[in-house]
């Protein structure tokens, strides 16, 4: 990286440095580079997985082999990319049993049940205050790192269209809480198996069980909860918006909002870590279920 060199003091103002120009000597570009790689990898994989419209749950055929075209549920798992499953012709997870894909759409056009829901968690993360920092730095170089020159001279911030829409973050947070409930329910259902430990079907009945996928789904919900409860809009909503926790005039007993605000603050202090861990866990949960559904990995039945 070039150094700032002499400072042009014309008119008493140091001139604006060019893109990447800095006197910093540390590897300031490493953080943004890893961020760009991580976010891009998730975006590419997530889009591809949502496009597939298949292998979001594990099915078996009548011969008892893992087969997407089979009709029997082999494990009580559902990929978080497809939950809630708005439609599917045969999945018992589906809200509507059928195919909602418009017949007039050309075959190559991407459409799947995942596309109907992913906008909500996607926009929750897009408008998240942490992710804003991450992609403003890594993807937009505004700035690329602290005290490092930028590529553009114009700047609107979040004062004008379209970035003024970042102020809608709280609405996506409401959806994120709803999705947390849905994914929590999915994780609970992942304890309710249609097969015994040997993999034999229970003639329509179910029994309590735990597979590795169950634990992965539970961990995913826990990490998503850590991310959602530490959300800055959530923290504001539950108590941060108040100036006075002791009002009216009772400093001995604070309002419950104070404890809720402290609870959210605990998660908020590591919001970045929760953001990355939950992003990874969502992706990995889909990868695990997809790989099991493809028959490449075999789910480990623990109980």
């Amino acid at each position: 990286m070039s150094q700032a060199g002499t400072l042009d003091q014309t008119g008493g103002r140091q001139s604006q440095d060019g893109f990447g120009v800095t006197a910093r000597r540390d590897a300031w570009w490493v953080g943004p580079a890893f961020t760009a790689i991580g976010l891009s990898a998730f975006l590419i994989y997530g889009t591809w997985a949502a496009w597939q419209s298949s292998h979001f749950e594990i099915r078996k055929n009548v011969a008892g082999k893992v087969d997407w075209k089979g009709t029997q549920e082999a494990a009580p798992y559902l990929s978080p990319f497809y939950s809630p499953l708005i439609y599917d012709p045969q999945s018992h997870h589906a809200i509507i049993k059928g195919d909602l894909r418009p017949s007039w759409l050309p075959g190559w056009f991407p459409f799947s049940a995942a596309f109907l829901i992913l906008a909500f968690p996607g926009l929750f993360r897009f408008t998240c205050y942490y992710y804003r920092k991450a992609y403003y730095r890594a993807m937009w170089a505004d700035p690329p790192a602290c005290a490092v020159g930028e590529p553009r001279k114009s700047y609107w911030g979040e004062n004008r269209w379209p970035l003024i829409l970042q102020n809608s973050h709280r609405y996506f947070m409401y959806f994120a809480v709803l999705f947390l409930v849905i994914l929590g329910w999915d994780a609970l259902k992942a304890f309710w198996w249609p097969t015994d430990r040997a993999g034999n079907f229970l003639d329509g009945g179910h029994q309590l069980g735990i597979g590795l996928g169950t634990l992965i789904m539970v961990a995913n919900v826990c990490l998503l909860a850590g991310f959602t409860f530490g959300c800055n809009s959530f923290r504001h909503l539950v108590g941060g918006r108040l100036d006075c926790f002791s009002c009216p005039n009772n400093i001995a007993k604070l309002r419950p909002s104070y404890k809720l605000w402290r609870f959210s603050t605990l998660f908020n202090e590591n919001h970045m870590q929760w953001a990355w861990l939950s992003l990874f866990s969502v992706g990995f949960t889909d990868v695990y279920i997809r790989m099991c559904a493809l028959g490449i990995w075999t789910d480990l039945r623990i109980l």
């Binding site: 804003r132 403003y136 505004d142 602290c146 911030g157 979040e158 004062n159 970035l163």
Partner: peptide, 15 residues
């Protein structure tokens, strides 16, 4: 004070 201009890149916190 134009708080909307801030895009929360957190350099202020870092330094």
């Amino acid at each position: 004070l134009n708080i909307g201009l801030c895009n929360i890149t957190k350099c202020c916190t870092e330094v």
